[in-house]
Design a protein around this nucleic acid. Structure first.
Lengths: 244, 244
DNA sequence: CGTCAACATATTTTCGAAAATCCGTTGATC
DNA sequence: GATCAACGGATTTTCGAAAATATGTTGACG
């Protein structure tokens, strides 16, 4: 008998793996905002046919990570200061509700998972030492899981899926900020405070800390977004001259 | 010169028209919850090939109207009392925020559009006289537009798109309720009150009325959902006997 | 010199068939 | 009679080519 027959998890369909990879690449800005997504290039990049790629792109379109224009194909969704602001404002409101519900209902299980998620997060570094221009993938995963753990007891699938979609959108901006060489802020302490307040069921304080957490990220990202935009504008002007 | 050259709107792609039709059919429960969506049947129903159908279904999957299981194809998303409850609870919170923002920012334009939307809604009957088992499609459109008009000034694309997605989900339950022969409640008065309070910028009252509006719908739909479930169970038992 | 039609190329969109997978049935084995 | 491998039809998933559409270029014309 094999030691662990497990469940022999069905291998994901190509479409599914395309979805995961595309989503990851977009969130990490390996596919840059507004970049055209030509099917032929993607075919080469991910090694599969047209159908699974287009299907995955359609799902991402509905998620708001990809934009589709009639007969002109797909692009990575645009970013803008305005969109960032909207996103963050909305995140604050949504997470406030989800947090409130979660703190009201969370039991021992929830507390344990939250502690565990924080511990794992605290052992990761934000930046990958080998590749200082990108977020550490492991940190990203643990960070996402920590914030999910905070609201995990809210007992609303709907709320949680909305929250995580907004969170993903925001992650893209953070990745941009890192790529612009903005030094990452050290927010282990922030996360710890947040967790403590949550575990103590200090609802108002948790909500305030969370609002602050999001606002700080917003400020930081907005600044490097503006800087990046300026740099890009200068680059474009130069290119324009060079080409003339 | 032709009187109105218009813009010669580009004809939608097949995929796009599949999306619209499928979404409409699912929301109106012409495709029933949990019904399997075999590609061959859809091909016949909508008169197109596999690709645009699958692509449209993928978008609907991301919207939560369709479920996809590995190598087992698509189904119309399940309904349940629990999901309905979750949906309505979440809707109340989301719409409260969007309404608050909208009432704070709405200008003359917003007021005018709201009045206009209400007027159009009030001239529609909820039930189609020719087909009393289904919601009147025109009423459905005006109703959706009225509720969209309420929050239209909130200045948050993110919030508005979340709201309208939840609204669509809820519409499916209302359609079910009508199909179960539940007499539609006459809510013109409710909508009028809601509009009045909104135009008067009575924030708390508007939020309360909206909460009530949603709660009433919930109560009504939940009741006929339970009745329908019982009826279905009886039918199933009978079928079971008949088949033995 | 600018405008625009006509063509050529690049790209997206759609189709129909092939490959992979699932599910119910049969029949062999114990 | 129970278990289970193997087969066959139904269905989903994927591919590659064809059709439709957009984009860029050329050259004719005013």
């Amino acid at each position: 008998m094999p030691p662990s027959p497990a469940k022999s998890v069905a291998p994901p369909t190509l479409q599914e793996s395309a979805l995961r990879q595309l989503r990851a690449d977009i969130i990490a800005c390996r596919l840059m905002p507004n970049e055209r997504l030509r099917v032929e290039a993607l075919r080469e990049r991910y090694g599969m046919g047209i159908s699974p790629l287009r299907e995955a792109l359609m799902r991402l379109e509905a998620e708001g990570l990809v934009e589709l224009e009639q007969n002109k194909g797909f692009r990575v969704a645009e970013v803008s200061h305005e969109n960032l602001r909207d996103l963050m404002r909305t995140r604050i409101e949504i997470e406030s509700i989800a947090l409130r519900w979660s703190l009201e209902k969370g039991g021992v299980e929830w507390e344990a998972n939250l502690l565990s998620a924080f511990h794992r997060l605290s052992r990761q570094t934000k930046i990958d030492p080998d590749n200082p221009d990108a977020l550490n993938a492991a940190w990203r995963r643990e960070h996402a899981e920590f914030h999910a753990a905070l609201v995990a007891a809210c007992a609303s699938q709907t709320m949680m899926s909305i929250r995580s979609r907004l969170f993903e959108q925001a992650e893209r901006y953070v990745a941009l900020s890192i790529m612009a060489n903005a030094p990452p802020r050290d927010d282990v302490a922030e996360h710890k405070q947040l967790m403590r307040a949550a575990l103590n069921r200090e609802i108002d304080r948790t909500l305030d800390l969370n609002r602050l957490h999001i606002t700080r990220t917003f400020d930081k990202v907005a600044a490097s977004l503006a800087a990046g935009r300026d740099a890009a504008a200068r680059g474009k002007a130069q290119n324009g001259k060079a080409l003339k």
